[in-house]
Simulated scan of single mutants.
Amino acid sequence: MADSPPPAPPAAPRWVKVFAIIVGVLILLVVIAKLTGLGGDHGPGRHMGTGGAAPVGVAAIQAYAPPEDSYR
């Protein structure tokens, strides 16, 4: 009896290969956008002013003034 080679493991299904390719392309696009700056400036500082302004909640409390005719 001749020794036969062990059977090869089954190949991955087509949907697994397509999903892996799509995920790889998306990761590549994110890396390219991050390295080239095409994605813009992201992060918590993006929505804050450039000055040393108070946080939004504090600024809203400080800016509140009751209506003038409420004292009558």
Rank of each mutant, 00 (worst) to 15 (best):
M1S: 10
M1I: 03
M1R: 05
A2P: 01
A2K: 00
A2L: 03
A2W: 12
A2H: 04
S4G: 01
S4F: 10
P5R: 01
P7M: 10
A8Y: 14
P9D: 13
P9Y: 07
P10T: 04
P10I: 04
A11F: 08
A12I: 00
P13E: 06
P13C: 01
R14T: 08
R14C: 04
R14W: 03
R14I: 08
W15E: 15
V16T: 09
V16E: 15
V16R: 05
V18M: 09
V18P: 11
F19L: 13
A20K: 11
A20F: 05
I21N: 09
I21F: 12
I21D: 07
I22Q: 12
I22N: 11
V23P: 05
V23L: 13
V23R: 06
V23Q: 09
V23Y: 00
G24H: 06
V25R: 02
V25N: 03
L26T: 11
L26E: 10
L28Y: 00
L28R: 02
L29N: 00
V30G: 02
V31C: 04
V31W: 10
V31N: 00
I32R: 03
I32Y: 03
A33V: 08
A33M: 09
A33C: 11
K34D: 11
K34C: 04
L35G: 02
L35S: 04
L35C: 04
L35F: 02
G37P: 00
G37S: 07
G37I: 04
G37K: 01
G39Q: 04
G39S: 03
G40I: 03
G40K: 02
G40Q: 05
G40T: 06
D41K: 10
D41F: 00
D41R: 08
H42E: 14
H42V: 03
G43E: 00
P44D: 02
P44A: 02
G45Q: 11
G45A: 09
G45H: 08
G45C: 05
G45S: 10
R46F: 06
R46M: 11
R46P: 08
R46S: 15
H47P: 01
T50G: 11
G51Q: 03
G52S: 02
G52K: 00
A54P: 15
P55Q: 02
P55L: 01
V56S: 11
V56W: 13
V56F: 13
G57W: 05
V58N: 06
V58H: 04
V58C: 06
A59R: 15
A59E: 15
A60P: 12
A60M: 15
A60W: 14
I61V: 15
Q62P: 14
Q62T: 14
A63Q: 12
Y64V: 10
Y64A: 12
Y64K: 12
Y64D: 15
A65V: 12
A65E: 15
P66F: 09
P66L: 14
P66S: 11
P66Y: 03
P67N: 10
P67D: 13
E68D: 14
E68P: 07
E68H: 14
D69T: 09
D69I: 03
S70N: 05
S70E: 12
Y71I: 12
Y71A: 13
Y71Q: 14
